[in-house]
Design a protein around this nucleic acid. Structure first.
Lengths: 154, 154
DNA sequence: TTGAATGCAAAAGTTTTGCAACCAA
DNA sequence: TTGGTTGCAAAACTTTTGCATTCAA
């Protein structure tokens, strides 16, 4: 944890930004909720628990900064808010998501499943890929199970 | 064109909605701009050209309705607006996008490049896929060319 | 001391909602 | 008549911005 904070600190410094207490508090919240997909408001409320004096604008500015440095990725699942996701260390590309349309759960896929597809796109469309966003919408295991149970009891 | 309007009319009727003049005007704009990725505001302004009495709220409500019926897909490229894209007739899945980070151009890929990936996801993650969103961010041919030209003249 | 960073409040921008009026079956 | 649909305006939200103040090198 402290290691990751240190490395992020260095990343900021190398672009001549400072890791201020507010930024550190924001980064800590992101690290503590690595599995979640927090909105700016979510992050703000969580940071506020430990650092009540922080302002929402600062959170937005920090998230923007971290996105720019590719420490986090900004993503949108179609509800009106942007969400932020820590990029795994050393990951060349943004990971993929499985969004359950029944319960809203979001799972992550770390494996890069797009290598072949990207090769095709770069070759056939002459498009130089820098990043990608891949999200599957469907029904998670739990909700599939729930449905089966319901059908049996009917 | 009239054929497609008729089919959309039937789709609406089969869910007991009407194809009102305002809805038809909206659908026509979407058909006439199939290649574009219009925001609600874009659609509103275009519809207003021919039907000046229409309200923005009606456009939003129509786009929501068409999305629900899977006639159009709502998509978000990371600028603060939702955009709407006609689903190709008979297409099982939403098509993919190439967004140029230099000039903002958006190209579409009709081919379903995800068949293999979806098979893996359904098998390994036991996730029942209903839909997907795949967008590549990178540099389009034109902007690559522009960059090369710049480098040569330097 | 100086530029970067912050907090607050206001502003900007998108999307939704309440409601009276309208319209078609 | 009745329920769906519309237009308008207001409201609700998310995100950005202006500015005085604060902070750290």
């Amino acid at each position: 944890m402290e290691n990751r904070i240190d490395r992020i600190k260095k990343q900021l410094h190398s672009s001549s930004y400072k890791l201020t207490p507010q930024r550190e508090a924001t980064v800590r919240v992101l690290l503590e909720h690595e599995e979640d997909h927090l909105s700016a408001e979510d992050v703000y409320l969580l940071v506020k628990e430990k650092s009540p004096e922080i302002g929402l604008a600062t959170v937005y500015r920090t998230l923007e900064l971290l996105t720019e440095l590719k420490i986090i990725d900004k993503i949108n699942f179609g509800d009106g808010v942007s969400r932020y996701d820590l990029r795994k260390e050393g990951a060349a590309h943004f990971h993929h998501h499985l969004v359950c349309i029944e319960c809203g759960a979001v799972a992550e896929i770390e494996d890069d499943l797009l290598e072949d597809v990207e090769e095709i796109v770069e070759r056939d469309w002459k498009f130089k890929i820098m990043d990608h966003r891949l999200t599957f919408h469907g029904i998670c295991v739990k909700c599939q199970q729930k449905k089966e149970d319901q059908e049996q009891s009917e």
